[in-house]
Amino acid sequence: MESSHSKNLHTERIRTSDSLTLAATCSGERGQPAVILLHGGGQTRHSWRGTVRSLGALGYHALAFDARGHGDSDWSPKPDYSYERLADDLQAVVSTMAAPPVIIGASMGGMTAMHAIGRNEAAFARAMVLVDIAPRVDPKGLKRVGDFLNGHRDGFANIEEAADAVAAYNPHRPRPRDPRGLMKNLRLRDDGRLHWHWDPRFFRERSDEQREKNAQRLLDMCRHITIPALLVHGAQSDVVTTHGIDELRARLPHLEVGRVSGAGHMIAGDRNEAFNGAIMPFLERHAPA
């Protein structure tokens, strides 16, 4: 594991079990209560930058990493992007921590967290926070996410075009006056155009039968998840439904549920301060700094 420092944040490189390298941003000191943050599909660790910095300042050892095929982490050569493989990567990251962490996962990251926690002993993690995800979600909302992630395969002529695409996907979020922050999620390729910085092979269409099988498997795994758990969902989310929440609570009776008003599926990006406020009481109870 290699690291480099910059102010309150530093970068680490973590090796996976199949010898890929994952890029991580960290804050705080090793030995402090640990928190690992997993981003959603098509995002990068930078979506957690504000939360990582805040947690470090509050006395936690916080780490957010780019999933394989995303951001500055390696792409899988096969490609192998199953949730089982993503859970393997999470296990590699957890092994670098001084103590069992609280794991916070948004969307795809939440699904990864459930897979990893559900197949390990309770000592694997101290607590779990799911961010706008449940084993069974609204197929229309899921399709809208998929259409955005699979769109724009030919890239963008400039950063303004990329900002327009994000604004069309998230019309309730104010468009930033300066879109240059998007460059953390874009790379200039040999064709002279800007492309989202993730492996396009990562996102493949799944049949309704495959999605239902995966949902049922994850619900069955819930019987092994006995650690404290919190679900934070966006009031304007078109992905997580009341039915999905109720179904998950039936399998995880100890699940706490928090709701962030004015936020959609991308809660941390839509209302970062409100999101931090929603998770802090849970962290203070289950991993006091």
Rank of each mutant, 00 (worst) to 15 (best):
N8D: 08
H10M: 11
R13I: 15
L20K: 01
T21F: 04
T21M: 11
T21Y: 06
L22P: 00
C26I: 14
S27P: 07
E29D: 03
Q32D: 12
P33Q: 11
H39F: 04
G40C: 00
G42Q: 03
H46D: 09
S47L: 09
S47V: 14
S47E: 07
L58F: 03
H61N: 11
A64N: 12
D66G: 07
P79W: 01
R85Q: 10
A87K: 01
A92S: 13
S95N: 13
P101S: 11
V102G: 13
S107Q: 04
G110M: 06
N120L: 14
N120G: 04
E121N: 08
K140P: 05
K143F: 06
K143L: 08
V145A: 13
D154P: 12
F156A: 12
P179H: 08
P179Y: 02
G181Y: 15
R187W: 03
R189N: 12
H195K: 02
H197D: 14
H197G: 14
P200V: 05
F202H: 12
F203S: 15
F203I: 15
R206V: 11
Q210L: 08
R211L: 15
N214E: 09
N214A: 10
A215F: 00
M221C: 05
R223D: 04
T241A: 04
E247F: 08
L255I: 00
V257H: 09
V260W: 08
G264E: 04
N272C: 13
G277F: 13
G277W: 09
R285E: 03
A289I: 03
